[in-house]
């Protein structure tokens, strides 16, 4: 059950768009920075396959400039 955290950089002026797009995705939790075009993104998926699929969906978002992985945890389901 992977839990990962990322820093997501929005294209200039597109922070709101990125927040909305990410918020629509299941298994994503978004915390935007107050004063910069950066969001903290935490993903929480049931397995590695879902994690891969989600990551691809995130990378397809137009308003996303860069996605940087910060931490990855694998929490056993028990």
């Amino acid at each position: 059950m992977p839990i990962k955290s990322y820093l997501a950089h929005a294209h200039g002026g597109q922070k709101e768009k990125l927040i909305n797009a990410l918020s629509e995705l299941h298994d994503c939790e978004v915390t935007p920075s107050e004063n910069q075009d950066i969001l903290v993104l935490v993903t929480d998926t049931p397995d590695d396959i879902s994690d891969d699929i989600l990551k691809k969906k995130i990378e397809d978002i137009d308003s996303l400039k860069i996605l940087t992985l910060v931490s990855g945890f694998n929490n056993p389901s028990n």
Binding site: I3, D44, S71
Partner: peptide
């Protein structure tokens, strides 16, 4: 999840 988020906030 909280630790993951805090790590990212700290990295930022």
């Amino acid at each position: 999840k909280r630790m993951a988020k805090l790590s990212a906030v700290t990295a930022a």
